[in-house]
Design a protein around this nucleic acid. Structure first.
Lengths: 203, 203
DNA sequence: TATGAAAATAAACCATGGTTTAGTTTTATA
DNA sequence: TATAAAACTAAACCATGGTTTATTTTCATA
């Protein structure tokens, strides 16, 4: 299977600038999709490809920073490169602190934009490093499926207590602890004590 | 034992500004140490207290960004708040991307500076959350202290294999595996199998 | 209240792991 | 090469954990 072709999304209300950026990015062989308004882009972002977003700061209706905030709210963490004609320092600081890749002021050197794009594309490769949340939720569900007594026993087991000790501390016999432990293994879907420890480390 | 009192270091070549910042920060009850040049500060940074640095961007000899770079090179990660009278956007972007807490332009609202200081002090508390590197190195040293055979056995143990299985796969008797396992526990300084698994998770 | 399901308890028996002791092989070094 | 230290191997014995079966208790609900 081949690597997905990255797409550079460009949003600017000035059609001349839009076309210029389009040409520049295409000239280095990257696929480009243009939008002349923020809303137009936001309506399509859900089905976006791997890539990054080049965003004008000052636009009617919705500013670039607004777009950035909106994307954050819907959990869309596409890397953003801001382009600004009239931006000020607080604006740039805010954009970067919020996670933008770069904040370029017009006129900028072509090399600066291309460098920012390279950085952005690298960053958008990362998300695959933490696909855990669903898995974690599953583990928690298993834990919640344990009875109170089983949860207590599990805590002692994880701390390395012997069944004998656990029994004494809970005021029950060792035999009972063994059964609880057996049920814990089944409910937590652990094939070995080693696996049980690793599973529970994620809680 | 009491929490260490944070110290706000201020570096600005303009004595009027320096004094004004000094008064402002002291007014909220924080300890301040002033420097009128970058070199003066750098000469004393090694023995710094918990706190943060308020740094003028434009100074003779060495700019604020130069100071930031120098601090990075010597591994000193004190949080930095930049104050700028004549800064431009690329400068601010670079400062923030390099890790500065904020980049304020004169004149700024007092509240903005105080807010930045709060953030900075919080960040300088953090280093204690990942004191791991030394610990990790220690773990690795323990692992390296295992003999080849012991490392092999350990891998099987971590995978949850029974001693019986491990013995067969290594072509030795179960009794021998048990002894290796015993030595592994000693060398890895694990009091229980549970602890062993957790220790090795960090490798 | 009657009742069935789930939880908690326990004992007997079996399997597995841990500890001790000891012999052999390998490796580094005087 | 001779020698000591470390690694590897093994067996016997003991302790611990796991599995099965069964009884009692708790709890929701018909």
């Amino acid at each position: 299977m081949s690597a997905p072709q990255p797409v550079i999304y460009i949003v600017d209300d000035d059609s001349a600038v839009l076309e210029a950026l389009n040409s520049l990015v295409r000239s280095i062989g990257l696929e480009v999709v243009c939008f002349s308004s923020a809303n137009e882009f936001l309506a399509n972002v859900k089905k976006r490809a791997h890539g990054c977003l080049i965003l004008d700061v000052r636009m009617p209706e919705m500013s670039g920073l607004d777009v950035q905030r909106t994307l954050g709210e819907i959990g869309e963490d596409i890397p953003i490169i801001f382009i600004s004609g009239h931006g000020d320092i607080p604006m740039a600081v805010k954009a970067i602190k919020t996670g933008a890749i770069d904040f370029l002021t017009k006129p900028f050197r072509e090399e600066d934009l291309l460098s920012a794009i390279r950085t952005a594309l690298q960053q958008d490769h990362q998300p695959k490093t933490s696909p855990d949340s669903a898995f974690i939720a599953d583990i928690k569900a298993r834990y919640d499926g344990l009875s109170k007594r089983e949860q207590q026993v599990l805590h002692f087991v994880l701390q390395g207590h012997l069944n004998k000790q656990t029994a004494q501390e809970l005021g029950i016999t060792e035999a009972t602890v063994k059964v609880h432990r057996h049920n814990i293994m089944k409910k937590m879907q652990a094939a070995s004590l080693q696996e049980l420890v690793r599973i529970c480390e994620k809680l």
